[in-house]
Amino acid sequence: MLPLSLLNASKGRPMQVELKNGETYNGHLVNCDPWMNISLQKDGETFYSLEECYIRGSSIKYLRIQDDVIDNVKEESQRNKNQMRNRNNMRGRGRGRNSNRGRGANNNIRS
């Protein structure tokens, strides 16, 4: 799970962003891209708040995300892996299962 994929996976989740100049922004992650540019949406009324903000990736020092995101991502990637494996297995079995292909409609009924 690459850092940027983790960022991608935390879309919609609250996070704290610290910029290189030491300013911090809290908010829900709306969108991000491969350059780490991000847009945040306001998250409660705790601080002086902007409705939305866009942060250029190059000005970021670090992002803090919730603890459970990383676990969710792990589970999901494991599930995807299993799914892929199943699909691959299916592909392997394909010929065997449909061995009656092209031999007429009733060939698969054996008495």
């Binding site: 850092p3 670090y62 803090r64 995300i65 603890d67 990383i70």
Partner: peptide, 11 residues
């Protein structure tokens, strides 16, 4: 304790 960090490599 600070939880999970994604640190930008430059820093």
């Amino acid at each position: 304790e600070r939880g999970v960090f994604i640190i930008r490599g430059e820093n």
